[in-house]
Each structure stands twice: as structure tokens, then as C-alpha cells.
Amino acid sequence: MGAEADATWTTTADGSEVALGNFNATLRDYGRLGMLLANDGAVGGKQIVPKDYLLDATDWQRQPPAFAPGKATPYFGYGYQFWLYPGEKRRFALLGVYGQSIFVDPELKLVMVVTAAAKNANVGKESFAFERGAVWRGIVSKYGRW
């Protein structure tokens, strides 16, 4: 994807990667990851991540009913580590437990990266999640329609 730096991932004592979180990259590389996802896994004419996988992972209409928005959570749907927005347009986010986020709108080719962090791992109990979501909805509304 054209990363400018090596990313890191927390590993266990035996060197196994911990897949549930703890991935670290530069701000620009998080943006590049978002743009890779916004372009359905392609960059520079080369398919890096299989497109069908990303469509399956990021389109709530391809998920089992239990993973649809309003079912998986009171608001988001869920697919393969992606949080899926309700609505006809395919929009999704990667959400860290402290609020770090990558928001993606593939149609608009729009990405927002948030590296700020909340005080607690349960972001839903703070205003941070609401404020972060309001900024994203405002940006999408400015360049497209919600």
C-alpha cells in the first residue's frame, strides 16, 4: 500500500502476533490503509487485498441478519473486524477500544483517521464516541449525503 514505515503488532512471549488489537502504524500509514480500503483493496492498479473479501467484510447487506446494524449493536453492524454503518451507502469504520478510528466512505473516497484516545476503554460511556461520530457525519454530509 506504499507504507512509509514498518508497522508493529504486539506479540506474545513466543513471538505470535496478538490479532485482537495492539496494531501500531504512523498517522500517514493509517490514512494509506483507509484509502486502500476505500479503493476496495487496490492501489496503483494492483489488488493488494481481495476485493470480494472486503465487500463481504464491509457491506452490512452481505452479513447474516444477526450482524446487521441495529442487531450486532444498537447502531453499527459488524463484519470481520469492521463496524458497519446503517443505510444504503457502504460506509464502515475500524474502531479501537480507546476511540482510535479509521472511518471509510468508498463511494466518496473519503477517509478520516482519529488517533486521539478516550480515558477509558469503553468509549460508549464517554462523549468521545458521540463527538467523533458527529465530526464524521458532518464531513460526509459536506461532500456527499448521509
Rank of each mutant, 00 (worst) to 15 (best):
S16L: 15
E17C: 15
V18H: 11
V18S: 11
A19K: 07
L20V: 07
G21E: 10
N22Y: 15
N22L: 13
F23C: 13
F23W: 09
F23H: 12
N24H: 15
T26V: 09
T26G: 10
L27F: 15
L27K: 14
L27H: 15
R28S: 15
D29G: 09
D29L: 11
D29A: 12
Y30G: 07
M35Y: 13
M35Q: 12
N39C: 08
D40N: 13
D40K: 11
G41C: 10
A42G: 11
A42V: 08
V43F: 15
V43T: 14
G44R: 14
G44S: 13
K46I: 11
I48P: 01
V49I: 15
V49D: 07
K51N: 10
L54S: 09
L54D: 00
L55A: 06
L55P: 01
D56A: 13
D56W: 00
D56R: 04
D59S: 06
D59I: 04
W60T: 10
Q61F: 02
Q61G: 00
Q63V: 00
P64C: 08
P64I: 11
P64W: 08
A66G: 01
A68P: 01
G70P: 08
T73Q: 06
F76I: 03
F76T: 03
G77W: 04
Y78H: 03
F82C: 09
F82V: 06
L84Q: 05
Y85W: 05
P86E: 05
G87K: 03
G87S: 01
G87D: 09
E88R: 10
E88H: 10
K89I: 05
R90T: 12
R90C: 08
R91I: 03
F92M: 03
L94P: 00
G96W: 07
G96N: 08
V97F: 07
V97C: 05
V97P: 02
Y98P: 13
Y98L: 14
Y98S: 12
G99E: 13
S101K: 08
I102A: 00
I102P: 02
V104P: 04
D105L: 00
P106E: 06
E107H: 02
K109Y: 06
K109A: 08
V111N: 04
M112C: 05
M112V: 10
V113M: 05
V114M: 06
V114N: 03
V114W: 02
A116W: 10
A116D: 14
A117S: 12
N120E: 14
N120P: 01
A121D: 04
A121Y: 14
A121M: 14
V123K: 03
K125L: 08
K125G: 11
K125A: 13
E126H: 01
E126C: 04
S127C: 00
S127M: 02
S127H: 03
F128V: 09
A129E: 15
G133K: 04
A134K: 15
V135F: 12
R137S: 11
R137A: 08
G138C: 08
I139Q: 01
V140C: 02
S141I: 09
K142P: 07
